[in-house]
Design a protein around this nucleic acid. Structure first.
Ligand SMILES: [Mn+2]
Ligand SMILES: [Mn+2]
Ligand SMILES: [Zn+2]
Ligand SMILES: [Zn+2]
Lengths: 145, 145
DNA sequence: TCCTAAATAAGAATAATTATTATTTAAAAT
DNA sequence: ATTTTAAATAATAATTATTCTTATTTAGGA
């Protein structure tokens, strides 16, 4: 189920985006992360195999991916943006201790909110996105005796 | 219904925080804003009457207020933190055009979410806060003919 | 294979925030 | 009221994340 280099090439070309090695590699790495990496983290993770790719290119490419709905930004209380290869609206769990961001799968809750808002409507506001972050601490998972 | 200088002095002392002019002034100004200002904006708004207060002190004081639950941080896609004198959980409307953040009063929706999560529970996660941001565009309010 | 517009690398610049330190001040103790 | 002192502040340097600039490289069409 690996997304190959040429899979990504096609995807980019489909969207009318020039396919370059840095772009494919950055997107490929973002897809492999399931932990919402920062630009810096992606840059580091690419170093070994592609030491030439500059951090500025990572930033610009991530921006490009966001613009083209192949990625999304995730903000937290920390002073750095993190990125997500998932672009459909979904709920995030943010651990304030470990700074880990996890996807929280609950379509029912999402629909609940969406329906409520749709039914009620927000005066003088065109809603384009719902962002729900659940903050807390992930419990140290001790094996229970 | 103005919150006076000495009201704030008392509040700070209650919490065991030394009451200083910069602190009182900063908190007083944050309370007057209802639009989620950045540190910079608060600093500017204070200049006229208190030109001596430094930006670093504004940052440190806002942090102190957050630590003591007199204020909260609000993050958006922009690269700056904004502050809120409201500390109880509440919903935000974020206008992507004007960058305005508005409070969206809807206790029913909040309870809906809170109940759902409470009932269901999140495995291996101690929930401490719920953050719901509604993104979109505030409609240009034209008087309808 | 050649051409050219677009992308990149490298590094400088900027913006937000934090750290450092000499000076000032609130408030506790005299 | 004065003195004392730990804590807070102003000023400014430093840091971090991100964006900008520009000379060079490259993807992909001719
Ligand atoms: Mn920053
Ligand atoms: Mn920044
Ligand atoms: Zn996610
Ligand atoms: Zn608010």
């Amino acid at each position: 189920m690996e997304v190959t280099f040429s899979d990504i090439q096609s995807k980019l070309r489909e969207l009318g985006i020039k396919s370059t090695i840095p772009r494919v590699v950055i997107y490929q790495h973002l897809l492999k992360f399931n932990r919402h990496p920062s630009a810096e983290e992606i840059h580091v993770s690419i170093q070994k195999k592609y030491p030439g790719v500059s951090l500025a290119t990572v930033y610009k490419t991530l921006d490009l991916l966001v613009q083209n709905h192949l990625a999304s930004k995730v903000v937290t209380d920390e002073d750095k943006v993190r990125y997500d290869a998932r672009t459909e609206s979904h709920i995030h769990l943010y651990c304030e201790k470990t700074k880990k961001i996890m996807d929280y799968e609950d379509d029912v809750l999402e629909q609940l909110i969406r329906n409520y808002i749709e039914k009620k409507g927000i005066p003088n506001f065109d809603l384009t996105g719902i962002q729900l972050n659940l903050k807390g601490q992930s419990k140290t998972l001790k094996k229970q005796q």
